[in-house]
Nucleic acid binder design. Sequence first.
DNA 1: CCTACCGATCGGTAGG
DNA 2: CCTACCGATCGGTAGG
Lengths: 219, 219
Amino acid sequence: MASSAKALSKRAVPRRQARGIRTREAILERAVDISSVHGLDGLTVGHLATTLRMSKSGLFAHFGSKEELQLATIDTARRIFIDRIIRPALAAPKGMPRLWNLIRLWISYVEKRVFSGGCFFTAASFEFDSRPGPVRDRIALVMREWMDVLTRAVQEAQRAGHINAKIDAALLAHEIHAIAIGAHWAEQLLDDRRAYARSLSITRKMLARVATPKSPAFV
Amino acid sequence: MASSAKALSKRAVPRRQARGIRTREAILERAVDISSVHGLDGLTVGHLATTLRMSKSGLFAHFGSKEELQLATIDTARRIFIDRIIRPALAAPKGMPRLWNLIRLWISYVEKRVFSGGCFFTAASFEFDSRPGPVRDRIALVMREWMDVLTRAVQEAQRAGHINAKIDAALLAHEIHAIAIGAHWAEQLLDDRRAYARSLSITRKMLARVATPKSPAFV
DNA sequence: CCTACCGATCGGTAGG
DNA sequence: CCTACCGATCGGTAGG
């Protein structure tokens, strides 16, 4: 991908600007990874520059302030989350299959340790939940989006006749989310290697309780 | 309490040492509160000293290093957790009443905002879960203790015939814990004020599903 | 428990 | 994207 882009001589974006964008993306992907371990506050410009073999000011030129860097890091984590979990999950048909796909892909993505520190958003949520400001607001925005995606998936499953229509969709979404957070906690802090398998099993039972006979199987 | 202690002229602990201990306790209680908002890493000696109107070095004299301060802060939070939740919960008889008391007191203690940042241990857990070292180990130790307390309460309820003996006690304890963490998350990050009531209602239904007819009511 | 320090690192800027 | 800085703050120490 990178080499074919380099091979092009005529294109819309000037070479200089294109390289700047690629550098920015490389910076931000590293920033997401570092933040997943050290937090968005533990992410420092100096450390980030060193690991990228850049000068501090050279890196800083891409962002106006540390807060802008934090916000851009959150946006990058969001894009990765959408690319890796939400978009692939939409491949399954609406209803129980799509809902189950969302849960399964989410758990397996954290299990695979895409980032060194596990789930970026869980860490960021608890780091900033008591610290008012733009960073907290941005994290909350992304997490509301995610809860809406989960809630909508439940509602679609209800409309498809896979889940009992009487169930409170938002409440079920919260239960699903809580079980996943609990799995991150047990796996990462307590080194409980059965945590992810257990959370999938709990969620499966949870869904089985609200599923209609019409629902396709989910494994 | 403080004045009657001062009035005593003869006692086992010399006045100087007693004052030192009280100062240390005051420092650590403030440290728990600051950490609940800014994290155990965001807790700095300078800021802590300023809010206590002490010199940095005067405060630092109580601890050999920042890491020692962090460890002592965790121990203090643990003691508060035991005093405020576990000990009062033990007042209820073994079985479902005691288990329900643990859950109820835990949720209400975070709801009451005993600390500015909500639940100290949830924040600390996610801050250090990917950062090996003595601080992470100490947090994990306390959390294992807490999971053991919860698991034992479930087992006692099983022995008392209040909960179905076939239920996996550790698994139920993990479910209970996950729902509570999910409530902290929704309440503190998303400003969802129904989060705590909802988590109690979810947990109540969870227990109702595994309770035997012999179980006392829990509300 | 204090004053007076230390080197290192923080976020950020000037100027190229 | 760099070098060369800035003042502030970090954890920590000497000496009392």
